[in-house]
Design a protein around this nucleic acid. Sequence first.
RNA 1: GUGGGUGUAGCUCAGCUGGUAGAGCGCCGCGUUGUGGUCGCGGAUGUCGCGGGUUCGAGUCCCGUCACUCACCCCA
Length: 460
Amino acid sequence: MAKIAPLSGFPEFLPGQRIVEQQILDTVREIFELHGFASLETRSVEPLEQLLRKGEIDKEVYVLRRLHASDADQPSQADQLGLHFDLTVPLARYVLQNAGHLDFPFRRYQIQKVWRGERPQEGRYREFTQADIDIIGRDTLAFHHEVEIALVMAEVFAALPIPPAIIKVNNRKLVEGFFRGVGAADHEAGLRALDKLDKVGSDRVRTLLIDEAGVDSDRADVCLQMAQISGSDGSVADRLRGLGVQHPLLDQGLDELMAVVTAAEARRPGAVAADLKIARGLDYYTGTVFETELAGFESLGSICSGGRYDSLATDGRATFPGIGISLGVSRLVVPLLAAGHLQASRTVPSCVLVAVGDESERAASDAVADQLRSRGISTEVAPQAAKFGKQIRHADRRGIPFVWFASADGHSVKDIRSGDQVDADPTTWNPPASDLRPTVTMDSGQATDPRDPQQEEFTS
RNA sequence: GUGGGUGUAGCUCAGCUGGUAGAGCGCCGCGUUGUGGUCGCGGAUGUCGCGGGUUCGAGUCCCGUCACUCACCCCA
């Protein structure tokens, strides 16, 4: 029999892994809604023209084509449909389209698949799930939302059974002002160079700054010093000012950066830190930018990124500035599962397996199952009236904690982990609350409830 | 798109200079004739990625191809 190979970059889960992902998605959704973000789903496709605004053809967009389309009705680029590669561009289109029906500032979350036609690697996929929150204003958007957005994500990280995640913040105005202040010819090239600091080291970045960004060789070191500044208190501003670079944009960016960092530090210490080397590739960001580093998984890159965009959407009369951040659910979950750090307590939702003594007694077992289900206990009935040993094994393989035995003498339920078996009444029996649903465990033996912010510390 | 690595049982892998394919784990059965897990004994499983070539003979050598994977680029 021919083996079906997996399709690279299109991750799929086994049932137990899917349970982990679903619980994480449930937690994300719950916290987003706790903060009043409304759910939105946009279509999977946008006109190619919309996706490629500013003529960037380097974006790896998957296009959609009818199998039976003839060469004659080859659509123009304007009509061609592409799968969206993020959730921000569709949001911009949606806001313009529905501006008359929306109330501003408009707060929405969106958890959907996106597609990018890139070469896959660990943590980067061709089809993956993003969880976005954005706040969109009409003409203006108050600055405090930038703090709010970061703190909502920080709350998500605190609630998830994952290693510590730190949101790194920088500001485009600050960096641009800095590069103007040191007389760089191309501040965008400078940005890209600094972004590589962790990867290629300061010597190579110095070369890039000089060759690509046009920084004078004697000022390249000042840029490197700037890039090495990070922290979550006022010393960040002091160290930056100590470098002596002057530019109005730099001052404005620094004020904004410090406002985000100090406000976040006051409300959730340790969750957010300034880091002046982070750049963010996407070109529509105009101020605050976010990246998130997952402890022990730094090589994945950012698991959650976003920022402020002043002019992503405009209809000529009004502009719609926004602030948003996007959690790469797949980038977070797939590597943690692959490394074996996350485990579900079982591979099925079932809390109870009702044994079947003989096929002639199946109806009685079904009745027990229905009684348990009516009280919210996920229950399945044994597929065969096999030996009880096999039925217990059926439950054991799947991690189902309880097996129910019904006989003419009465009912009993066995906790197959302890082996304890007790008489029970299907109309009143309840499992311990912790067994009602599958639980997600981080590493070995540490049960964590994704909804419980008091989760265990990650140990690697 | 560019460059490197790897394809052998369900999984992880061994298989030397060519000589008819192996281990561990898992799976199935029995011991234990209707209460699993431990233990013991027994058993099943392969187009050796695919196509071609060299050879008496190819998992092994050569060519091609596909897939997976890592790095660059870029990003969640």
